[in-house]
Write a protein that binds this DNA or RNA. Structure first.
Lengths: 277, 277
DNA sequence: AGATGGATGCGTACGTCGTACGCGTCGATG
DNA sequence: CATCGACGCGTACGACGTACGCATCCATCT
């Protein structure tokens, strides 16, 4: 009887998994099963509707976690902090959540479920992708902290919400009779761009929260004086670009502008393949 | 005399900065100055060439840190670990490095400096951006751990290497007589895409290292049986795409394919503005 | 030669984190 | 009324970043 940890779903032995965070499940299949069974066995003591606030549930824990992450970033999320928020002991959380990793995964699911997927078919593929892009953009605006998690999800974890998101984006090409591999390539280009911009958005949000906490106010525009990025000299082109235009950091405008470029690129490839639509 | 921390460069008071990691410098200007002075005052005791290995220097520390991060990921990087690698006491590192945050910043600089920027002017803007893209791609292949840092750098930190990278990419448009703001928009689109793909690359690298550490071998293709992403059902389009083609996870191929799309998009916008080149 | 003072190495200690373990208490069921 | 599983949580351990202060070394100046 060694101290080897076991998969929270199938109970099989689970290697310590190198130096990274300890794993909770042994495979994506196991994680998916855990989600399913959790949803099925929900009504335990309280008949589900009753949420007076006394009883500790997964939903309450996840909600509290999301509140903390929204307000103060993923760095501020600790099990002790969530427990304090709920007025319970730290270890009580582990009755409902397998690990911190698991909690964050559940938070991502819940946060993504909050922004609905479009349910009507798009007018055309371009409209479909634009809708999908703005949905994601909205998501990252509300919950910037989901990005670092998304970035690891594709291979290591399984996320129903993320899969549904991809599925929805892919459905934009439904009528076009594309090769599945081509549709996948387009979606990959599209999703990579959106996530790439999200990186900047998240970095901005983080920086803004930090400077807000430090100075008590949103220091949106610091003293660009002696900021090396704004001084011509080492980076003349960059400096010119940073000073130019209204505000190169109007991320929303940059996002839609770049998105148009991405869609134009896809359109060019579609035209080359004779699938105009 | 309070316990308030001070900026490592200008010595000014530095607010605790919310919940995030404690800051080391009070502004990008201060960080840039710290880099400059550090480079100037380098020859202290040992005349610089002598690197028998006995003496502790910033370079040795940074090299050790990079080695650890390359081999085991940023999660495995701790001050104690770096010190052990160098056979010194943990706190000795702080004589040469202001904080862990500072160390990571220096590691990013060193890692990026290792892959040279092109020094000849590009044949045309497309060639210039392709060169830049492949340089970044090479970078993320060698040092996946720099991405989470890059993602926060734009606003909160200043990185000479990153600025030089952007400057180099911008130079692709040199002959075209573009508005600075337009060139910036193109670069933003381009960089966002590259970073977005890098997200997937990094996630893959992380997952691979974990499964390698766990099973002792690179489990490149797990049992796709009962993997919910490969089973038609909940995600039919996605499942079809995942099964389709040779290997949808040939990231290098996906990268160049998507890059072509991005460049086509930029070309379309250039043509619309009558700047064909 | 001896004194001095800054630069350097590092041991100890504090407060944080995730979480293993085990005890106590409850409520539903026999 | 006895029992037993589900639940809440107090304590403790080994990681982490790093503040602080002492010891040592060497270049310099008397």
């Amino acid at each position: 009887m060694s101290v080897q940890p076991t998969c929270a779903s199938c109970g099989e032995a689970l290697e310590p998994a190198g130096r990274g965070r300890p794993r909770t499940y042994c495979s994506r299949a196991c994680q998916a099963r855990a989600y399913r069974t959790r949803k099925e066995e929900a009504p335990s003591r309280v008949p589900e509707g009753d949420d007076g606030g006394r009883h500790l549930t997964v939903e309450r824990i996840v909600r509290a976690g999301i509140a903390v992450a929204d307000a103060e970033g993923l760095d501020a999320l600790s099990m002790r902090r969530v427990a304090m928020e709920l007025g319970t002991g730290t270890m009580s959380l582990y009755r409902h959540v397998a690990s911190k990793d698991d909690l964050v995964a559940l938070m991502v699911e819940a946060a993504m479920a909050e922004v609905p997927l479009p349910d009507s078919p798009p007018r055309n593929w371009r409209h479909g992708l634009e809708r999908a892009a703005h949905r994601d953009w909205d998501l990252y605006h509300r919950h910037p902290w989901i990005l670092p998690r998304v970035m690891v999800t594709t291979r290591a974890y399984f996320s129903p919400a993320l899969a549904a998101d991809s599925e929805s984006a892919l459905s934009a090409f439904d009528g076009l009779d594309l090769e599945p591999a081509d549709a996948f390539r387009y979606m990959f280009l599209f999703a990579s761009y959106v996530q790439g911009v999200a990186l900047t958005l998240v970095g901005d949000a983080e920086a803004e929260r930090q400077s807000k906490a430090a100075t008590g106010e949103g220091a949106k525009d610091l003293d660009h004086a002696q900021d090396p990025l704004y001084e011509p000299g080492a980076y003349p082109r960059l400096a010119r670009a940073m000073r130019a235009g209204a505000d190169p950091w109007d991320l929303d405008a940059l996002f839609v502008s770049g998105l148009a470029g991405v869609l134009d690129g896809i359109a060019a490839d579609l035209a080359r393949r004779g699938k105009g639509a």
